[in-house]
């Protein structure tokens, strides 16, 4: 039973899931790195991206403008989250800020539920991409879009953080906020920017995965938790760690879904990751500082 095509199938679904978790983890990483806030509302931006794209698309807008509008609205919501909720409490403890993002996540879920109802919603594959058969394994038409988008986001983020003045300023805030302020970087603006960036990232991911996984008002919290666990396992202080963690979770889920009776895969993958994290709390890629 465990022939090449099965292994290939595990690998493909693993990469696909891994990309989703890595992308969500990166959203958490951007905000955590710059502001030290663990944003438990990250999954809500994924939900908003998906739901808004569906809403515009079903209202008759073409796919690309729908997606763009969804991302812009999510970015504005991200800015609101920072300005109205995080900023006034910026001097509180980390746990208070975690709870603030949780409160925001609850309210967002509630608003989504009252606007769109509880039904799951989906989109057709982008431009009708057909499923691909490869050595006996099936690649869903949407999978290349998910993987491609994540790759683009990762390359974009590395370029942004490595080669642009804004990216370097963000990194400066993450490394040494006081020093950043001394050289004239507005840590406040950078924090706002990190929330907007994370929200847009999340919304793009949400729109791209909708044809594959469907979306609904409540998908945000489980996605946040999985993305967070992926980020923690890999090391939330480094982008490479987050990507590694995401891939690890995706692979674990795909392999256990293939080998175990249905229903157990979620338990086993998350369980393994929790155990790995608790035994290596600094992350697989050892990061500086206490975790």
């Amino acid at each position: 039973m465990l022939d090449l095509s099965a292994i290939l199938q595990f690998f493909i679904s693993g990469v696909n899931l891994g990309c989703i978790y890595a992308a969500i983890g990166l959203g958490l990483f951007v905000v955590y790195g710059v502001t030290g806030v663990l944003n438990l509302a990250q999954g809500e931006f994924v939900m908003l991206g998906g739901m808004l794209t569906v809403a515009f698309y079903t209202a008759g807008t073409a796919l690309v403008p729908s997606l763009l509008m969804a991302v812009i609205i999510a970015a504005l919501v991200g800015a609101m989250l920072y300005r109205l909720i995080i900023y006034p409490a910026r001097n509180s403890s980390g746990s208070t800020l975690v709870f603030l993002t949780l409160g925001f996540a609850f309210a967002t879920e509630g608003i989504a539920l009252s606007v769109w109802g509880w039904e799951f919603k989906s989109l057709p594959s982008f431009w009708g991409s057909p499923n691909i058969q490869l050595w006996g394994a099936t690649i869903f038409g949407q999978t290349p879009w998910v993987v491609g988008t994540t790759l683009l986001l990762v390359i974009g983020l590395f370029f942004f953080f490595g080669h642009t003045i804004h990216g370097k300023a963000l990194r400066a805030c993450a490394d040494e906020p006081l020093g950043a302020r001394t050289v004239g970087i507005s840590t406040d603006q950078m924090a706002l920017f990190s929330f907007v960036l994370a929200a847009s990232l999340g919304a793009v991911v949400g729109a791209v995965i909708t044809p594959l996984t469907m979306t609904g008002y409540g998908v945000g919290m489980p996605l946040t938790i999985k993305g967070l666990l992926a980020a923690l396992v890999g090391g939330i202080n480094r982008a490479e760690g987050v990507i590694l963690g995401g891939m690890a979770l995706g692979m674990a889920e795909a392999i256990s879904a293939g080998l175990m009776p249905s229903g157990y895969h979620g338990v086993i993958a998350l369980g393994i990751l929790i155990v790995v994290f608790l035994s290596r709390p600094r992350g697989l890629l050892v990061a500086p500082g206490k975790v």
Partner: peptide, 14 residues
């Protein structure tokens, strides 16, 4: 502390 918040949430999901 804030990491514990995340891990306990994950435990609840599991």
């Amino acid at each position: 502390g804030l990491i514990v918040a995340g891990v306990t949430l994950a435990l609840n999901l599991v």
